[in-house]
C-alpha cells in the first residue's frame, strides 16, 4: 500500500518531477518501498540565470534554470509552440530552428549557451497573411500530412538551400574543390536530419525544388 499522504505527494515540485522524468514512467509503477530503496537524490536547487534571446527579431529576456534547452525556452517560456519536440535527442529534426543564420536542433542545446543570439523559428519565417516562399510551397505541394515535422522541415529546407548557395559541400557532392550544385540529390542528402513519419518526403522535395528553381523533369526522383 502506498503510505504517502496526499499532502506529502503534493509537495513534489515540478522541478523534482522534471529531474526524474526519464525514469518517471518506470518508477510510477513501483511500490513505495522499492522507490525508497532506489534512494532518489533530493532535488538540488540551483540558481536561475538571466538569458537574453533575440527571437524572430524581438528581444526576449528570460530567467531560466540552466537545464532549460533552447527548445523548451521557445515552447514553454515564450509560448512559441510552432517548433516541435519529437525525440528530444537530436534524431528527428522536429525542433530545427535557425540560430545566427544556421539551422540547429534546439533540443540539444541549452538556452543559456545562446545568450544574445538571434533565433528564427517557424513563426518568424512568415505569417499566415504573408507566408515565406518555402511555407507557401509546402502548402502548394502538400509537403506534409499530420504536420508535426513540418516546422522543422521548413526551417531545415530554407537553410539547406542557403547552405548550397553558400558553397558548403555535402556527402553527395562530387568534386570538393568546386561549389556544390543545386540538385535534388544534394537537397535530399542535406534533409536527412529531418524525419517524417507520414512519409511526405517526395512532396517536400517538390516544394523545395520549386523554391530553389530546379526543374525536376523526372531526373533524380
Amino acid at each position: 500500500m502506498n503510505d504517502r499522504t496526499p499532502e506529502t505527494a503534493s509537495t513534489v515540485t515540478r522541478r523534482g518531477v522534471l529531474t526524474t522524468s526519464a525514469v518517471g514512467a518506470a518508477a510510477a509503477a513501483l511500490p513505495a518501498p522499492v522507490l525508497a530503496a532506489g534512494k532518489p537524490e533530493p532535488a538540488r536547487s540551483v540558481p536561475t540565470m538571466p538569458v537574453t534571446l533575440k527571437v524572430n527579431g524581438r528581444t526576449r529576456e528570460l530567467e531560466l534554470d540552466p537545464r532549460v534547452t533552447l527548445l523548451d525556452a521557445l515552447r514553454e517560456h515564450l509560448s512559441l509552440t510552432g517548433t516541435k519536440k519529437g525525440c528530444d535527442h537530436g534524431q528527428c529534426g522536429a525542433c530545427t530552428v535557425i540560430v545566427n543564420g544556421r539551422r540547429i536542433n534546439s533540443c540539444l542545446t541549452l538556452a543559456a549557451m545562446h545568450d544574445g543570439d538571434a533565433v528564427t523559428t517557424i513563426e518568424g519565417l512568415g505569417t499566415p497573411d504573408k507566408l515565406h516562399p518555402m511555407q507557401a510551397a509546402f502548402v502548394k505541394h502538400d509537403g506534409y500530412q499530420c504536420g508535426y515535422c513540418t516546422p522543422g522541415q521548413i526551417c531545415s529546407a530554407v537553410s539547406t538551400i542557403a547552405e548550397i548557395k553558400e558553397g558548403i559541400p555535402s556527402h553527395v557532392s562530387g568534386d570538393l574543390t568546386v561549389k556544390p550544385q543545386m540538385t535534388v540529390t544534394e537537397m535530399r542528402e542535406r534533409m536527412s536530419g529531418n524525419i517524417c513519419r507520414c512519409g511526405a518526403y517526395s512532396n517536400i522535395i517538390d516544394a523545395m525544388s520549386e523554391v530553389a528553381g530546379i526543374d525536376q523533369g523526372g531526373v533524380d526522383a
Binding site: R102, R103, I104, L176, G193
Partner: peptide, 18 residues
C-alpha cells in the same frame, strides 16, 4: 579531402552546424 569527407558522412546538417 579525407577529413571533409569523413565529417560530411557523419550526423546531419543541423548537428554538424553545432
Amino acid at each position: 579531402g579525407v577529413l571533409s569527407r569523413a565529417l560530411l558522412a557523419g550526423a546531419s546538417g543541423q548537428l554538424r552546424n553545432k
